[in-house]
Design a protein around this nucleic acid. Sequence first.
DNA 1: TGCATTGGTGAACGCTGTTCTACGACACGC
DNA 2: GCGTGTCGTAGAACAGCGTTCACCAATGCA
Lengths: 262, 262
Amino acid sequence: MTEPDMPTPPWERARRRPAPARVPLTRERIVDAAFAVLDREGLDGLSMRRVAAELDVAVSALYAHVDNKDELLELMYRRFFDGLHLPEPDPERWQDQLKEYARQSRVRLLSHRDMARISMGQMPFSPELLPHVEKLLALLRAGGLPDRVTAIAGDLLSTYIDGFVAEESIWQSRYQGADTKSWTEIRDDIRDYFASLPPDRFPNMLAIANLMVDESNDYRFELGLDILVRGLASYAEPTPPPTGLDTRPPTGPDTGPAAGES
Amino acid sequence: MTEPDMPTPPWERARRRPAPARVPLTRERIVDAAFAVLDREGLDGLSMRRVAAELDVAVSALYAHVDNKDELLELMYRRFFDGLHLPEPDPERWQDQLKEYARQSRVRLLSHRDMARISMGQMPFSPELLPHVEKLLALLRAGGLPDRVTAIAGDLLSTYIDGFVAEESIWQSRYQGADTKSWTEIRDDIRDYFASLPPDRFPNMLAIANLMVDESNDYRFELGLDILVRGLASYAEPTPPPTGLDTRPPTGPDTGPAAGES
DNA sequence: TGCATTGGTGAACGCTGTTCTACGACACGC
DNA sequence: GCGTGTCGTAGAACAGCGTTCACCAATGCA
């Protein structure tokens, strides 16, 4: 209809007010855009400029709503827990509930690219996360874990989950970036690498090489999780009757408290 | 003596040759300088330009010896294991040996600022690390762990060590950067924060708040380590007679292998 | 003595997080 | 209705980053 090259007349320019169409910039919209950029470009590609571009906005506009890039990451981390639900602690099933929580966390982490790396750099003590931490602690204490074990179990579990997912994501993205090779080819390469080791010097590596390569991430996650939960369960006190079997520690409690660092 | 603004005459410029004093640039010297910068400025301050400045050398000179910053980090990671010694695996004491290895690793990681963060981003499969991995695997298998547990135990352990040290370093540096407050003051702040939570909504947090704050890092590390080792030990098969007590798993082996992801 | 090769130099490119100044549209009081 | 003031955005700028490129000087070899 209108010629594209024609200059816009002054009245047209005066009437040009997409003001109602211009949605105001908020923290929520910024976080939304940041997640869009994250999923598309990964954490290394997540820059303030790209987030601003995603919103069709100048970079400096972001800084009116967000102090820092660090604060933006923190906001993303908090948003990430929206809708997370932990069940009411059931002392009979605390181990299953704990595992279910871990599995759920892993799935959530995997749903956003590089989210595990973001999670690793954050401390889970923001106001909206505290209720979840509280429920996790309730779960552990309901299982009969001594308080000093409970105090470290949360750290232990989230370190495991974040670390595992971060590692599996790195493997995943490192070899789908250079998309010439498929996953099975990569696996064969790794297998070949292990197989090329001198057998006399690396007998144990060779013995488990296939297991390290073949097992699915799901299985490895589940096994590591079970190891962790068994270790925790070995500290459970029989105050509430445990799973039905003996959960006393297999070895003597010789844990030296060691010296304080300060 | 000489006027500072005078241009240097050509012969003076021609005689300028500190050549004999100039030691040649090598990868080793670059890694040395990188460690110096790391310890002084931390990982965030470790830039190629600063490493070059440490060596009184142009930035581009580094790239003749090192492909990448990533490669430099990898070289640092490898250098980091120089002189590491793992004992010959003793099936009788495999749990103690494993713990000793973990303690030693933590001390090493703490000896260079932010080294844990570097370690987290690396894969332990460089040629000079393989012998150590091999010995670790030998240790675990000597303890009677099934191969599928051994295959994941190394990951589990190093994830724990790296994660723990990274976290403790962050706490350490975050509050010694703003050096106005001492550690005890920080601790009081945290204690106050926990104490300010509504007791009806956060009974479990309050119950263990003191433990989370008061326990030394050494003790928390040791406890987490013990939890891990107990979990591993619960999988040990009695082929070599274990520590003297029953090490059978406390709960039934209901670990679902789950579905492979590809 | 001349030449080629090696290895460092300095400038440049494109990117980053962050800050500062200025402008333009809105809401309000007269 | 009109000036005025405030708020939020735009755009340029700064310092620093990893990396690359064309040049240049000093070395060893013929």
